[in-house]
Amino acid sequence: MKNWFMLTLIGQDRPGIVAGLTRALFENGCNLGEASMVRLGGMFTIMMMVETESDRTELITLTRPMEASTGIRVHIDEIEGALHSHIEPNYRFTVYGADQAGIVAETTETLARLRLNIINLETDVGGTDENPIYIMHIEGETKAKQEKIERALVELAKRKNIEIRVIPINTLIG
C-alpha cells in the first residue's frame, strides 16, 4: 500500500539540491506530489509530498547519504493529506511597509477574524539593513464581503502605517 509523507528539507543553498534529492527518490520508486521549494535567507527549503510503498524509516535511509555529504537536514512525517483537495482563493492581499514587529501577526489576526483561510503566504524583506522593508503576499478564501474586509484592513493599515491592498480573485472557468 502506498502512503503519503511530507518531506521537509533545509540546507545551505547551492546548485543541485533539488536534482540530488528527487533523483534519489525517483530511483527508489517514490512519486512526488505538491511541493513548495524556496530560498529563504540564503538557506534552501523544501516542503514536498512524497508517495511511496516504503515506510518512514526506509524513506529516512534514502535521504541519509545526502544529509551526511552536504549538511542538509531532512525531516519526514507520515500525513493524512491527499492530492486533488485544492481550495480556490477568492482574495489576494499585498501588504508592505517599513519593517516592524507584528505586521504578520496583526494582519493575519485581522484576516482570521474575517474567517479567511490562508492558502498561500509569502513574505520577503527588502530594502537595506538600516531601512528594511517588509513585503507580504497572501491568497485566501473567505465568505466575508470585500467592503467588510477593507474596513478592517484600513484601520490596521493606518495604525501600523503600512500599505494593504485587497484584490478580489474572480476565477474564470472556461
Binding site: 498561500n120 484592513l153 484600513v154 493599515a157 500599505e163 491592498r165 485587497v166 484584490i167 472556461g174
Partner: peptide, 27 residues
C-alpha cells in the same frame, strides 16, 4: 476560449504566483 481553437490551454500562458494582479489601492 479562442486559445482552444489554436490548440492552446491556459497552461500555455501561466505566470508565477508572484506576478502581481492589477493594482488597486483601497487605502
Amino acid at each position: 476560449e479562442m486559445d482552444h481553437l489554436d490548440g492552446l490551454l491556459f497552461l500555455d500562458h501561466l505566470v508565477s504566483r508572484r506576478d502581481l494582479f492589477r493594482r488597486k489601492k483601497y487605502k
